[in-house]
Amino acid sequence: MVMNLSRALPVFSAAFVVLYLAATHFNLALFTYHPAQGELEFLTRPPKGGAPAMYWYGWIATAAVGACVVAAISLAVPDRLAARVWPGWTPIIAVVVMLAFVYLLRGWFLPSIGLILK
């Protein structure tokens, strides 16, 4: 039983990284933390009192909840079919998502690279 449940773990990991990218890009935070006020608010909320709001915890929560759902659904797939899926997809998806983050954050680096190359 435990061994059967554990086969959902690679699915959880693959789903988590994809959902984390989506949650970050579309700002789908399950909750917002206001560090200056020490307050938590449900879903994505704007910053308060001129201090920045933190969405990172909310993005992780969104991705974790979504990945749990995907992993639970994957358990419905028969063992025979699940065994056909190549387990190497989990690290490959993670590398692709890491490269996507580099691309999405390129605006922070391009001016510096331009200065170095000048």
Partner: peptide, 8 residues
């Protein structure tokens, strides 16, 4: 991402 990979 690394944290999410820990279960796998």
């Amino acid at each position: 991402i690394a944290l999410g990979l820990l279960p796998a």
